[in-house]
Write a protein that binds this DNA or RNA. Structure first.
Lengths: 338, 338
DNA sequence: TTTATTTGCGATAACGTTTTCGTTAAATAG
DNA sequence: CTATTTAACGAAAACGTTATCGCAAATAAA
């Protein structure tokens, strides 16, 4: 069922039917009604590809993220999707699995207009940003969230990584930690470094010794991450506090502690950036810095749509910060003195 | 940058360039090389909408699921996406949020050829299936997974719901439960009923009394679900075992137990269909029936592509069953006799 | 040499929309 | 009563591909 057939059924021209369906003022109300009725009767649906081709707009956005089985990216997608639904947009999803090669491949694919805009959170491994510049050059609307590329001049939706990290570290210190390890995911990612800097700052303020051996860059697969953490916690002078910059690392730490029979929080306290739904049900419940994932998703999508719809293109804030909140639970509870 | 411009640069016709890019045998190797080189140089990317319009194929599949913040649907998406990536397909995602109206809206939208095929898992609330029949009528390839519509004649990827439920119930009984409650999500969904029947069967076999009051249909939002469970666990003759048919209900039960100061597993044992990554880290660790989510996603996608590519259309198995595994943990641990 | 066949390429017609322009007839203005 | 505008519609040209032809020239077969 296409316009041609519909037009024939109505004994009208294609253009009239098309205009009627789009509620053009050129068409009389009477014909509009007839057309609408017939369209509904025959269950006519415009071909999206013909439409997109002609209008050079696809009503589609692309979301490029590292993974989806994740209590941060999941709610972000919810946020994005909720706005997209309101606007009648479609959402394409691309998972990099933390692989920069895939990220590059996706951005290349997305240079051909398949999506009207792109929402993106970088892979751990992403170091250079040529592929992102290419998108910028092609003038494809782009918005980063969470894991942003600082050097690319597009809107970014982030949380207050530095301050949150200061607070998290302070929280560990306040609860008695003297030797705190920081678990990072990347040496290059801006978000990692901001969090690291917050940690370093808080240590400095509190005259806590920082040590390169206490900063772990946990890359690779789960096993590799766990091996690193196991080594850290097996040292003679192991840390008494762990600050995980992402959720997965906190869970790895939990598993290793169980394996090594280390008690959380008595032997080692754990705090993490995390949106884990089950944080309060863990053994022990996990103290988290919870990011406003859903809000970030909504904000990112809303910002992207402003770009796509070219309204005040140049007045968009470069970066939008939505604060995280620290939720203290048992994994950082003050231990009774021995 | 389009074919026309590329052709002009090469002093060739549009059709020659097009064929060269698609590696047609009609074109000499020499020209092919020239064309490929120029295309790479000018970073030419075919317009996907023009292509789709012409070929009546979009290289896109749609995934319609209830939610994404979920340790079952998340891995399923991974599975789907992994196959889609191999095949060079794009993935559209639509979230129903368990709302049948949205499910209907999405299926209507997807009747216009935007996607070459659809993967779907029904919403809790989905009762009638007219919207699904419509898809079938339009001959749009469709594959169900997990939450399937039994009466629609398309391939279905499921787990052994009945047997798994029998085993789960038996596990509770073996560990001392005499009075087991079943938490369901829907009165109509086929998957819910299969799981319920497995539970009923096991109870019958073991001469355990079943009682309508022990079967809870937990619909509505989280609060509503919790209210129902709270009421269940506050009864004078409360159950000593809970079988949650989905993960979320197990988590609600955990929260209510904490609220009511009920000890798991001593006061009440809990088992659940669940793919929770943190199941082993919970307090207490949760006994689960773990579904092969990733494999189901891959299988569903692979099946869909067979339909889309029309190879042996009619020889596809109606239903593919991939077994779940029961992982016993502390939430069902045999309690010491009082 | 003549006749077939193959090789390599170009013109052109779709695919189903949207949109710009005409074109007519009726309504309004002068 | 003419002149001009407006209202309502249709014809046709895009949008960027792909695929079906057609057509030479080159090669092979007779």
């Amino acid at each position: 069922m296409n316009l041609k057939q519909l037009a024939k059924e109505l004994s009208l021209s294609i253009s009239t039917v098309s205009k009627a369906l789009r509620d053009s003022h050129e068409i009389s109300i009477a014909t509009k009604k007839k057309v609408l009725a017939k369209a509904k009767e025959l269950n006519y649906q415009a071909n999206p590809y013909a439409s997109s081709l002609r209008k050079q707009k696809s009503k589609t956005i692309a979301v490029v993220i590292p993974e989806v089985v994740n209590d941060f990216f999941g709610p972000v997608i919810n946020g994005i999707e909720s706005i997209a639904q309101e606007k009648g947009y479609h959402v394409l999803i691309y998972l990099t699995h933390e692989d920069m090669q895939k990220e590059v491949a996706f951005t290349n694919i997305l240079q051909n207009g398949r999506a009207d805009g792109i929402l993106m959170s970088l892979a751990e491994q992403t170091t250079d940003t040529l592929h992102l510049e290419a998108l910028k050059e092609r003038d494809i609307p782009l918005v980063f969230f969470d894991r942003v590329a600082d050097n690319i001049d597009v809107p970014k939706i982030i949380t207050d990584d530095f301050n949150s990290s200061v607070n998290a570290t302070q929280h560990l210190i306040d609860n008695g930690c003297k030797r705190i390890a920081f678990l990072s995911i990347s040496e290059t990612l801006s978000i990692s470094n901001k969090r690291l800097n917050g940690y370093l700052e808080a240590c400095k303020t509190n005259h806590i010794k920082t040590d390169n051996n206490l900063v772990l860059y946990c890359t690779g697969d789960d096993q590799a991450k766990k091996d690193l953490i196991r080594k850290l916690l097996s040292r003679k002078n192991r840390p008494d506090g762990i600050f995980a910059s992402v959720e997965k690392l906190a869970l790895c730490a939990y598993e290793i502690c169980e394996e090594l029979k280390l008690n959380i929080p008595d032997d080692v306290k754990v705090i993490s950036f995390s949106n884990l739904k089950t944080a309060s049900l863990l053994n022990p419940s996990l103290t988290t810095i919870t990011q406003p994932a859903f809000a970030m998703g909504r904000e990112a999508a809303a910002t992207l749509f402003k770009l796509v719809e070219k309204k005040g293109h140049h007045f968009l804030q470069e970066r939008t910060v939505i604060n995280s909140t620290l939720v203290a639970r048992n994994s950082t509870r003050l231990s009774a003195p021995k």
